[in-house]
Design a protein around this nucleic acid. Structure first.
Length: 428
RNA sequence: GCGUCGGUACUCAAGUGGUCAACGAGGGGAGACUGUAAAUCUCCUGACUUCGGUCUUCGAAAGUUCGAAUCUUUCCCGGCGCA
């Protein structure tokens, strides 16, 4: 069952090391959650994902709802079983797609922007070259499928329903991720919407959990005779679903007032944990996280949504974040970039063509212990997909180990030294 | 030998009198990527540049023309056909 326990706190800061128990295993926190949007860690098998150090994967409600459909996944026994992932799982609610397919569609605004980015100076909501695929109403969001153009209406209730069908251990409330370029007035309206949606998500979740418990009770009574009809080794077709934990999401853009208000309101609701969402200006991220985590209940886990650059992970951990997910490590790997202790490098660069050394000499990941940079460079140049696989393995190993090392450093009181040493090399 | 078609930048390949330093693709060089519209996207790729331009290019040479990668002649090279 879902439970969070803090093992040790960082002195003079909000950070902590702990453990989350889920029905499918434990997560040592802080932890990096690997993104498997469409029930697949792109380029890796679940075994490779696990071997790279990944504890938990996160899939996406909107994408799986469109393809192959949440009912199908329910019939498959949930997305974890569907993809053969033996471990804890999460699903995002689709709230990010409200943003990425909405205001951010066709623009260069992303999850994190720099304040000097010209997009930051554009207050208009309709600057994009293409018409947004997501349109926001107070009741929910209408999406035009990027796959076939069909129209779909997602409400908080619908998102929770889909997420129950997908069957992750931890699910998220449906929220509106806003762009930092929005006006204060819009941020405030959007925040009210997110709060209303959080409440509705929670209510729907409780209702479904109750139904589930009732169904389970009645099923237990009839279980023995019905089991006889099953072939050996076959799973119970509608096996009782395990309870799912629901995280509420704090928004509020760049505003201290709104962030704190959101933390108060969401924090007061009966969620199992909390997500911190939003598209950030890089320089606003730390303050936002701090404002929020000073208010959120200490005894519940916090997830900084979509963040995963090494320097951001240190910032988050220090400021009380327990979970992170990010497409970065896997995406940049597919595009030829890998992490090293001295910063990111692009394997496509000419200097790696003849470098018969691992990406990192002292790295003990599968990729570094078996392959040279020259080989990786060759794979990327030749467009062999194994390049993506090997680079992804390295990046996931790098990033999960980094967070695991942060955890260890909290436990043995060396977090600050570890952080300084690492960042000095990494950012130089 | 005669006829015919062709020879364009690293490669393939458009262009067939001015808007051509020359479309496009590949290759090459570099950059980006943060709850995945992403094995994707962007920029550069003749030389020099005070970034406004300047210079040298379209097999070679000579012409026609105000102006030629584009037309003419000869030569060189290649494909095909006929001897």
């Amino acid at each position: 069952m879902f439970k969070f326990e803090i093992h040790k706190k960082l002195e003079g800061a909000l950070g902590r090391a702990g453990i989350i128990n889920t029905p499918h295993g434990d997560i040592l926190t802080p932890a990096f959650v690997t993104v498997a949007t469409k029930a697949s860690t792109k380029a890796l098998t679940p075994e490779q994902t696990r071997d790279a150090g990944v504890q938990v994967v996160l899939a996406n409600t909107y994408h799986l709802y469109l393809q192959p459909g949440d009912e199908l996944i329910k019939n498959a026994g949930g997305f974890a079983k569907f993809m053969n992932w033996q471990g804890p799982t999460m699903t995002d609610s689709g709230g990010f797609q409200v943003f990425s397919l909405g205001v951010a569609y066709g623009k260069e605004i992303s999850k994190v922007t720099t304040i000097t980015d010209p997009n930051f100076l554009i207050p208009e909501r309709s600057i994009g070259t293409e018409a947004p695929l997501a349109k926001i109403g107070n009741d929910g969001v209408s999406f035009k499928s990027h796959l076939d153009g069909s129209l779909h209406y997602i409400t908080p209730e619908k998102s929770i329903e889909i997420q129950h069908n997908l069957g992750a251990d931890i699910i998220f409330a449906f929220d509106e991720c806003t762009s930092p370029t929005e006006t204060d007035r819009y941020q405030s309206e959007a925040l009210d919407r997110t709060h209303a949606w959080a409440k509705r998500s929670l209510e729907k979740h409780k209702e479904l959990e109750k139904q589930k418990a009732e169904a389970e009770n009645s099923q237990n009574l009839a279980a023995l005779p019905s089991l006889r009809g099953l072939r050996h080794g076959q799973d119970f077709p509608n096996s009782p679903r395990l309870p799912q934990a629901l995280f509420g999401i704090v928004q509020g853009g760049r505003s201290e007032e709104l962030r704190k208000k959101s933390a108060e309101i969401i924090g007061a609701m009966d969620f199992d944990g909390y997500g911190i969402g939003g598209s950030f200006a890089k320089e606003d991220m730390e303050t936002a996280v701090k404002w929020v985590n000073e208010i959120l209940p200490e005894e519940k886990p916090r997830h900084l949504l979509g963040i995963g650059e090494p320097e951001d992970l240190f910032m988050g951990v220090e400021n009380g974040v327990d979970l992170f997910d990010c497409v970065g490590p896997t995406r940049i790997a597919r595009n030829g970039t890998v992490f090293t202790k001295n910063g990111k490098i692009n394997l496509m660069n000419a200097k790696f063509v003849n470098l018969f050394e691992p990406i990192e000499k002292d790295c003990i990941c599968y990729t570094c212990t078996n392959y040279t940079s020259a080989y990786l460079s060759h794979l990327f140049r030749a467009k062999e997909m194994q390049g993506a696989t090997l680079a992804t393995i390295h990046n996931l190993y790098f990033i999960t180990k980094l967070v695991a090392d942060m955890r260890a450093s909290i436990l043995n009181d060396t977090f600050q030294e570890f952080k300084e040493t690492f960042l000095k090399n990494y950012l130089s």
